[in-house]
Simulated assay, not measured.
Amino acid sequence: MPTDTPLPLPLTANCSILFPDLPLAERPAAAAAAGFDAVEFWWPFDTSVPGDAEIDRFVTAVSDAGVVLSGLNFTAGDMTAGERGILSDPARRGEFTDNVDVAVGIGARLGTRGFNALYGNRIDGLDPAAQDEVAAQNLALAGRAAARIGAVALLEPVSGIDRYPLRTAADAVAALDRTGSGEVRLLLDIYHLAVNGDDPAAAIDRYADRIGHVQIADAPGRGEPGTGKLPIAALIERVHAAGYRGRISLEYRPVTADPFGWLSA
């Protein structure tokens, strides 16, 4: 059980990828039943600005489960169609601004401390520098909004989408630096870094003071630790030794009969 874990840092369950056989609204309760006191979600709505009733149903599902919503993604666009965020799309600045207000409003109700902004894919016919400038402005805006409730905005490298420009920790940190803001931080996703050929251990060592959140999955396969080749426990201990004291997100696809059994192994 997660409460028996020997790992040095508290955990959170990513309910957008864990408990895949359950409707989304039932997953916070399933996480609580599995021993977690915190959950996180990718953007859980079909639109960037859902109606009040839809928001209330989501908030109720989390609060009734008795867990904290430790992390929430901003809108990512149509992920099934390959989109990975709208942060860097000049045509969608208004949509992103409106989504930030909604997301931070949800976070204020549920104790959220991190909001992940996916960067967005490169757009044909548009100067990448123009996209980077818009992304910097939007990310700074998100950081200011998150800071109002004692939270931070996050940015992560992502694998599997060739048009997504942030592949390494260095890519993400360069984007953070363009904001000129201290209210935005690196989301260190061990799986994405490893799949992209970056060295998670070296990223921890180099960017320890920039890390705002950590997510784990094994590689290859994106399953639970022990199903691939990554030294997950050693990397968690490394980030702890480097000074990180936040939660570790279990953001993996369950591939064994006991997806949390590795915690007591």
Rank of each mutant, 00 (worst) to 15 (best):
L263F: 01
P44N: 10
G35E: 04
A33R: 12
P8V: 12
R222L: 01
E156P: 09
V173A: 14
G150Y: 03
A103C: 11
L18H: 00
N121R: 15
T47S: 14
V59Q: 04
T227Q: 08
Q215H: 15
D171K: 12
L193G: 02
L7H: 11
L263H: 05
E156K: 04
A146M: 06
I204F: 08
D177P: 03
P165R: 10
G228V: 07
D46Q: 14
D132W: 03
A76G: 15
R57I: 00
L9E: 14
L176K: 07
A34R: 00
A147M: 08
L141I: 03
G150I: 06
L250P: 00
G143N: 10
L110D: 05
A234W: 00
L250K: 00
A25F: 13
V134G: 13
A169M: 01
L139H: 08
P23H: 13
R238Y: 02
F74P: 09
R57C: 07
L11H: 04
A33K: 09
P220D: 04
D98Y: 10
I248Y: 06
S16V: 04
A151S: 06
L126E: 12
A145T: 14
L9W: 07
A103N: 05
L9R: 12
G261V: 08
V68T: 15
F45K: 09
G82I: 10
R109H: 06
R109Q: 14
L141N: 11
A169R: 03
F260K: 05
V102E: 10
L118S: 13
P2I: 12
A233F: 13
R185I: 02
L230R: 09
A135R: 12
G197R: 02
T80W: 02
A65E: 07
R93P: 00
R238F: 03
G150N: 05
P128I: 11
L235C: 08
